[in-house]
Design a protein around this nucleic acid. Sequence first.
DNA 1: AGGAACTTTAA
DNA 2: TAAAGTTCC
Length: 609
Amino acid sequence: MPPKRKATSQTPSEGPATKKTAFEALQPSVKTEPKTEPEFETKIKSENAPDYEDPNRERLEEEYGVIQRDFYPAEMSNERCAQYNANEIPRPIEVLTQAVQKTAFARKKIEVGDAVVHWFKRDLRTKDNRALHLASEKAKSKGVPLICLFIVSPQDYRAHLTAAVRVDFELRTLRVLKDDLAAKDIPLHVETVEVRKKAPGRIIELCQSWGAKHIFCNIEYEVDELRREAKMTNTCLEKGIDFHAVHDDVVVPPGNLTTGQGKQYSVYTPWYKAWVRHLHENPTMLDEFAAPEQNPPSAREKYADIFKTTIPPAPENKKLSDEERERFKSLWPPGEHEALDRLNKFLEKKINKYKDARNIPSANSTGVISVHLSTGTLAARTAIRSARNVNTSDKLDAGNEGIKTWISEVAWRDFYKHVLAHWPYVCMSKPFKYEYTKVRWEYNDEHFARWCEGRTGFPIVDAAVRQMHSMAYMHNRCRMIVASFLAKDLLLDWRMGERYFMEHLIDGDFASNNGGWGFSASTGVDPQPYFRIFNPLLQSEKFDEQGDYIRKWLPELKDIKGKAIHDPYGRGAGKQAEKAGYPKPMVDHKVCRDRCLARYKEGLGRTTA
DNA sequence: AGGAACTTTAA
DNA sequence: TAAAGTTCC
């Protein structure tokens, strides 16, 4: 699966591997007498690494798709990042909050119309859904029907790099949701709006056609979405409609947790302590929101045409092949019932061993509910509450070690959403540490292609990428390993990897994905200092000791015995690997490590992290 | 949510 | 001499 490139201009590639000569030329003084003579398939040198001032940099960022100029024309500058941090530019979340507050009085006076609308976005469930619950309550208060709505916007999928497999999962989930709602005589209207900016207008039109005066929805924390909801709050009010956007996606809403100085936390551990304390002080925040109630029977007739419609197939730009559709259908059953089943089975059978086993990718020891959290077939609140309820303590940071650990992992999701809300420029192709924009990243087609294809010659890296291609999923430990390899070993622009993950993972979520890549590239919050560079071989030996994971995803290496599995060419199984068509390591980790340290230092203009 | 180099300690 | 601990990157 080669990377997609936008532009036609090609950078000169290195051509076929020059092996020994290249290695020797670069390392004339290395004299450690390796037992097996190292051979590497590509040279490590800077081909295409423009500095911050280089006019080529912007061109490359566009060409490699880390900035989508067609959707986001204005460049986000370091100066503007600094202005956000100095509170000189209002954050989108603040703009929305203000719009909500300013309109609150006027909206409260709006009488219930002929129906109440809930707009589904990333909350594709009926249970424990705050906005849906509020919509149902509002409808009940006047005995009018609840109508649900979902907008498919192919252009939005393009702008947000949504994976086709993720779109497929959403559409399959909508079929489950439609049936569940229909059982309560609640219609679900699904409509395709090609141009994303036209979606709000169309939603308002639909509401007017139904005589509805209330639209409920749950807030999404990306910049486009926050700005859209802020605007909708005002536009709707002008038309006599109460647009009601509420916090639900996170367990604790962003902004609730601040340091002693009233600042946003940017380091996980103190943030987590505050998060736990906040939930202990406000235990009702974990309470479940009841599913919507039965509609009046008249709704069946009144909205007969909506009940008759079916969920559309995937839009042209997000179609899977037949083979993929079948594979993913059996791997990832859709809907909230599946989500709850998975959660409960995990809590019953696996969570006790989670602490020790969670980092072993072959152990099948994690919950694998990420796709449900990201599409909202499962609320993070439901996950945390359920784990608490099976714990020996009602405290989130006490009792069973496995449960404690798992809760703190789910909390990372909240953390990264808080980060996104407070530092919105991470959503505008800037790293949290925006001064890292000055690090010179490589843009090397051959290297990127080999990473994307899982042919780097580092078995643990390749196994992980192949898992992603096969399952549209990757174990978290492996995500860190492959991300570190792209950012630190290959020194490729980490945003290329971020994008590739979004385009291939079924659970792709902007905040978590961006946060994870920022972590691995050391450009994000809670930074590991940039000199923390994963050694792929050590990671492999530590977390896939017997090589089970590697053998599973790299079947060509399945007959390689013992420790050679981690490094066939370096451990005497080179002939076997070569025969099986498995490539030599594309680079020398030690050389890469040194280059990485030098490049980060150069970019930051200093010698410490 | 590391690793390499170096130092100390136990066998 | 190897494992365990420490420090620095």
